[in-house]
Amino acid sequence: MSPASQETAGAGRTPGRARPRVPLVSLLAALVAASAVLLGGAGGAEAAGYRYWSFWQGNGTTWEYATQGPSLLRPDDGTVQGFRFAVSEDSGDASQPRRAPDFGAICADTPAKDGSKRVALV
């Protein structure tokens, strides 16, 4: 080999050292393995149900799940409304407020006034 062809063949290299090359396949395999390790521990989040404040209306003796939210409802004097934190699949299995919706027992000491409403919250 002539000195000129040796210069061209070895241009940019350090004598005695080969440039390390990482094949693209090995790099991709390492990325996939790292992703599997990082994401393998993260399982799907499956909740036991919805978590929310359920809203109830008292009908004198029992609770009824409210079909409208408290921002839409305009209660009458002597109404009992209740809230209870619930974890449920739907309103059918939501927990009712703990106290009975008895307006007389809750607000016995609050006299009626003209121009105002008495609403008990449980």
Rank of each mutant, 00 (worst) to 15 (best):
M1W: 04
M1Y: 03
S2F: 05
S2H: 07
A4G: 00
G10E: 02
R13G: 03
A18E: 09
A18M: 07
R19W: 04
R19M: 07
R21E: 07
R21Y: 04
V25N: 09
L27E: 14
L27P: 00
A29C: 11
A30L: 15
A33D: 08
A33Q: 12
A34G: 14
S35V: 04
S35L: 14
S35R: 11
A36P: 07
A36I: 09
V37R: 11
G40C: 06
A42G: 00
G43S: 07
A47E: 09
A47S: 10
G49C: 10
Y50G: 11
Y50N: 11
R51K: 08
W56R: 02
N59Q: 10
G60R: 04
T61F: 04
T62V: 06
Q68S: 13
G69I: 06
G69W: 06
G69F: 00
L72R: 14
L73P: 09
L73R: 10
D76E: 14
D77M: 03
G82C: 09
F83C: 03
V87T: 03
S91G: 12
A94T: 10
S95Q: 08
D102G: 01
F103N: 05
F103W: 02
A112Y: 06
A112R: 14
D114A: 15
R118Y: 01
V119K: 07
A120L: 01
L121D: 02
